[in-house]
Computed example of a mutant assay.
Amino acid sequence: MSEPVNVFQQTRKHLKTGNFSFLSSQVAAWQKLTKRIQPLLPQPEQWQVVCYQSGVLTITGENQAMISQLAYLQKQYISQLSQIQELSDLCKIQVCLRNPPQSKPVVTKTERVLSPETKELLRSAADFINDPKLSQALLRLASNKK
């Protein structure tokens, strides 16, 4: 039986590039491993490998129920996953809760365009209001000044 290859072990050639190539290859290996283990783990969760070192596989998921199921049935999943060549020395699975990515709302700046009638109504309202601050605010709104 051959010795397992540790793709996460830093080599001398990575020192010159500031570890970027090492980290890139590490992330690529984790992504490849994620695709291999995904169908074997509880579904419909989107599992993600974040580390595999010294026989410990660390993965994340977004669903607490699926994470609990995986932790509870860890021995069965270890026996299944250890059939994969890269995970032949697997002895433990650590599972962490991952926050789902939040899509940020796209804020677009829209210019306010008031019709001439609306501007005139705002100016007229400003004339009738006794509060000077409110009157000034209405006049600014009518002139589209910020």
Rank of each mutant, 00 (worst) to 15 (best):
K92V: 03
N130C: 08
S54C: 11
Q85M: 03
M1P: 00
Q85E: 12
L97I: 09
K109H: 13
W47N: 00
L23H: 12
P101N: 02
K16P: 15
Q46M: 07
V56M: 01
M66E: 08
Y72N: 14
V27K: 04
S88C: 10
V27G: 01
R98E: 15
L90Q: 01
K104F: 14
Q48A: 12
I84F: 08
N63W: 02
Q94E: 11
Q46T: 13
S103G: 10
V50H: 08
V113R: 03
K145Q: 15
Y52A: 14
E117C: 02
R140A: 14
Q10R: 13
I67S: 00
L90T: 00
L138W: 11
P100H: 15
Q26S: 13
F22L: 13
H14M: 07
G55M: 13
E45P: 05
Q64F: 02
M1I: 02
I37L: 13
R98N: 15
L33M: 07
L122S: 05
V56Q: 06
N6Q: 02
T34Y: 00
P116D: 04
K16D: 07
L122M: 10
W30K: 09
I37Q: 07
V107H: 04
N130V: 09
F8W: 06
Q53K: 14
P105W: 00
S88P: 00
L138K: 14
N63V: 11
V107R: 01
L90C: 03
N63I: 13
V27A: 11
R112W: 12
A142V: 14
L134R: 09
H14L: 03
V5T: 11
Q9P: 00
L23Q: 10
K133D: 11
F22P: 14
Q53C: 04
S82C: 12
I129Y: 06
S135W: 07
N144P: 05
L73N: 07
V27T: 04
G18N: 07
C91Y: 02
I37E: 02
R112G: 04
A71K: 14
K109M: 11
K75Y: 09
L40S: 11
R123F: 03
P44M: 12
Q48L: 12
A125E: 07
Q46W: 03
A137L: 09
E86M: 06
L81K: 08
N99K: 11
E86C: 01
L114H: 05
I129W: 05
I67M: 05
S68N: 09
Q69A: 15
P116V: 00
A125C: 04
Y77H: 14
L134H: 06
S135N: 08
A28S: 07
